[in-house]
Simulated assay, not measured.
Amino acid sequence: MTITACGGANPAAETSNKPVDVGVAVPSAWTAQGQIRVGIACDYPPFGYTDLTGGNAGYDAEVARTLAAYAFGNDSKVSFTCVTPQNRIPYLSTNKIDLIISTLGYTQERAKTIDYSTAYFTSGAKLLVANGSNLDGWQSLHGKTIITKTGTTSSTFLTNCYADSQQLRLDSTSDAVAALKAGRGVAFAEDSTLLLGLALNDKSLKVVGQDEAQTPWGLGIRQGDTETKKWVDAALADMQMKDTFWTIFNKAVQNKEAAATFAGNMPRPGASIAYTDENTLADCSK
């Protein structure tokens, strides 16, 4: 399985055209600075990472470039700053960046300090299994040993909803993958985006199952910046209508089988993703 190196710093790859009219004025601060300043993950393929040319690549990077093309008619009118889960909100709040596009899951606590765009992806727990495994989803887990990482939402979800299964709890991703390959459990349950990256880099593994304990992602916007939120939400709505998120995802994840597993994880025509304050870790209805 392969990840495309989409979005290096090659000027020949830039797309220049007319801005897209989404019915809302481009934020005045962006117009004044002539670009969008985006905080992005640089170590989380296939969503945000640094490619072999040193450029920013992945799903989130291409969403950012698409917004630049909408705002300025040129997808190079974006500057990237590598951020971590710890510093991304402080960077936004102190005006070092204009948007967080960095696998930012919605939580009630975060929503007290920043504003969210409408959701542009959703992530939950899925299952990593060996390529030859017949296990095809969560309902196959009853009575079996499942590998998890200590203290994760996946472990909590299994405790709540699959109490008849046994968990082999380990402290690191590498230990969990090693245990899976050694046959110490039938699957490794973890965040679906992490598992996708693992499967893309190891042809002996694959991701199965529907997302459980889902957490929608949004673009982080400074709290009270209604001008930016209105434009971003309008642009994302247009991208959804044109099925742009799915197009971007298939550029970031070239393997068709792997990509198809995530076909329902992004807004698509007629299929939006909504935020929820419900406790998805205790939702055992599926």
Rank of each mutant, 00 (worst) to 15 (best):
D115Q: 10
T228C: 09
V232T: 11
T122V: 13
P216V: 12
A213Y: 08
W231R: 13
S140V: 04
T159K: 11
S155P: 00
D175L: 13
E212G: 04
N134R: 12
A235R: 03
A199D: 03
Q166N: 13
Q108T: 13
G209E: 01
L141A: 03
L198Y: 06
T215H: 08
Y116T: 08
L198M: 13
N131V: 14
E109K: 15
V177K: 03
A163L: 03
K229G: 11
S155A: 12
I221V: 11
G143V: 05
T159D: 08
L158C: 07
K229N: 15
L128E: 02
S204K: 11
K203G: 12
T152V: 05
K206H: 03
D202E: 13
D175E: 15
A213D: 11
S155Y: 00
S133W: 08
G224D: 13
N160H: 12
D164M: 02
K181A: 06
I146F: 05
V208G: 05
Q108P: 00
E190M: 11
S165E: 04
I147Y: 01
Y120W: 14
V208T: 11
K181G: 07
L196Q: 07
A125L: 10
T145Y: 01
V186R: 05
T226I: 15
K206Q: 09
A176P: 00
E212P: 00
N201E: 14
T122P: 00
T156P: 05
A235H: 07
G105R: 06
T148N: 06
L127A: 05
Q214L: 13
L127Q: 02
G209H: 01
A234V: 14
K229L: 15
